[in-house]
Structures are given as structure tokens and as C-alpha cells.
Design a binder for these strands. Structure first.
Length: 277
DNA sequence: CTCCCGTCTT
DNA sequence: AAGACGGGAG
């Protein structure tokens, strides 16, 4: 791995932490050390601008203050509260995670990244960011912001892989200040070294939304959330006659994502589609 | 148009 | 390794 000169580390730490003291953003999830609350915020923040999460997060924590209340809820209500955040499967996975936490972890969100990784919706980044922000654990978590900062400030190649980035991130982490450091990096990346300003492209990108598959998916799901009894595939087909994609295949995908269920009606009455019970 | 405190599936 | 996945702000 590439060696980082100690002076460069000092410089970076000072620059980022100074900026944070001066211009750091204030968010509700930064005021708590409750692991469940941090988990909720981290899942919501995946691929989602922080400012757009605030209201949803507050409403969510009001309705689901702990894993037990979340696990006991209907999926429909979960998705209604999630609506507007995007990537609806995240909401379903979060509820499924709450279920597992209740069953296997005595209702307490685990603090070990290895255990967190086993929960649905929690991957390499989030499994580390939760202990970082909730427990101030001295480990590195690399998201798109932090990746960009390391590349720009330390002169790394843009093709640097996730493993090497982790090594570098660990090398520049100020011991004992993990939470502050990661918050500072987030803000420095979001407010100073933006993607636009640096020209560093994120690892993952997405295609145009309007008229896309996921655009129709989201509209269908929203319709189903409004129709308590569900809708038949007939009704859906009629409503989305303009959809260029195969609606049945689209519904199958929604079902695979555990968001909806399809039931064949008796006497060849078609297929009823509804939000999964 | 790009991108956002990524994860899951194939 | 590549593609799918929401929705809105900049």
C-alpha cells in the first residue's frame, strides 16, 4: 500500500477538523448515541442527501422509537413513512432487520460490524458507520465523500480500490475521535470537496429516472399504498397503458423485493396485487 | 444533466 | 464485475 507521510496526515486532520468546528452541519442523528437511531439514519442516508432525510428521520423515530415498535408495524405503514426517500426496499429491509434484532439480539442493535453485516440492508459501509457514529469506535468507514477526499487531498489515483482506500482511511483516522472525524469528513466532502468541484466521479451511477423502470415501479407502489384492498393486474395495466416495460415482469420484481404480493383470484378472476401483509 | 453518508442480485 | 434500485436538489 502507498505510504502516507505523517506531515500529510497532520495537515489533513487539521484542515478537516478545523472546517468542521467552523462550518459543521447540525443533524438530529448527530445528537444521539442510540445505536438504533443511528442505524435508522444511516440506512436513510444511503444514496440520499442528508437535508432530505431530516424530516423523514424525525417522523420515523417518533413512530418507531425502537426495534420492537418497528417490527410490530405493518409493511404498508413502514412504506408510507418511507415514501419520498427512494429505494423503497431499504424500508422493507430495515423492518426485517428489526425483526432479526428482536429475535436474535434481544432487541439490541449489535455493535460489532461483523454481526451488523449479517442484517439485511447493511453492507460494508453501514456496518462500520453505525459503530463509528453510535459508539465512537476507532475504525474507518469509507463512503463516496471520504473516498473523494482521500483521493484529492492525498493525491491518490482515482482507480484506487476499496481495499487500499480502507488502509489509507485507517492510517489517517485520529484515535479516539472517530465520530467527530467521520462527521467532519462528511461535511468537508459535501460542502467543500464536492463531486462537481473535484471532478471525481462516484463509483456507482444511475441512469435517468423519468420514464425509467424504477419510475414506474415507484408509481405502482404508491398506487398500491393508496388502495387498501389492492389492485388487479387489469387495473394496473389500464392505468399504465403507456408503460414501455413488461408490467408483469415489473410486478414480479416488486414481489421479489418483498414489497408486494400477488394472489390469483378464484374462478379465473385475474390476479390481485397488494402491498405485502 | 449529475449526484447523493450503498446494497443486493445475477 | 455489472446492473438494478427513488426521488429530489443543485
Amino acid at each position: 500500500m502507498k505510504r502516507i507521510p505523517p506531515d500529510d496526515i497532520d495537515m489533513l486532520q487539521h484542515k478537516v477538523l478545523s472546517f468542521y468546528r467552523e462550518h459543521g452541519r447540525v443533524y438530529p442523528w448527530r445528537k444521539t448515541t442510540d445505536r438504533y437511531a443511528v442505524m435508522v439514519s444511516e440506512i436513510m442516508l444511503q444514496q440520499t442527501q442528508a437535508d432530505r432525510v431530516v424530516g423523514k428521520y424525525l417522523a420515523w423515530m417518533e413512530r418507531y422509537p425502537d426495534p420492537a415498535s418497528l417490527a410490530a408495524s405493518s409493511l404498508k405503514e413502514v412504506l408510507c413513512l418511507w415514501s419520498g426517500l427512494g429505494y423503497n426496499a431499504r424500508g422493507e429491509r430495515l423492518q426485517r432487520a428489526a425483526d432479526i434484532i428482536l429475535r436474535d439480539f434481544d432487541g439490541q442493535v449489535p455493535g460489532d460490524p461483523e454481526l451488523l453485516m449479517t442484517l439485511p440492508g447493511i453492507g460494508p459501509y453501514t456496518s462500520r458507520s453505525i459503530p463509528v457514529f453510535a459508539d465512537n469506535m476507532d475504525i474507518a468507514a469509507v463512503d463516496t465523500n471520504i473516498r473523494r477526499i482521500l483521493i484529492v487531498e492525498l493525491g491518490l489515483d482515482e482507480s484506487t480500490g476499496p481495499k487500499q482506500l480502507m488502509d489509507v482511511a485507517r492510517a489517517v483516522l485520529p484515535a479516539g475521535r472517530s465520530r467527530e472525524w467521520h462527521n467532519a469528513l462528511m461535511d468537508y466532502g459535501a460542502l467543500v470537496l464536492t463531486a462537481r468541484r473535484t471532478g471525481i466521479r462516484p463509483v456507482t451511477r444511475q441512469s435517468r429516472f423519468e420514464g425509467s423502470r424504477r419510475w414506474y415501479r415507484s408509481r405502482i407502489l404508491r398506487d398500491l399504498l393508496e388502495h387498501d384492498g389492492g389492485m388487479t393486474t387489469e387495473e394496473i395495466s389500464a392505468r399504465y397503458a403507456d408503460c414501455p416495460y413488461d408490467l408483469d415482469g415489473l410486478l414480479d420484481e416488486l414481489e421479489k423485493d418483498r414489497l408486494i404480493e400477488q394472489e390469483a383470484l378464484p374462478d379465473d378472476g385475474g390476479v390481485m396485487v397488494r402491498v405485502r401483509a
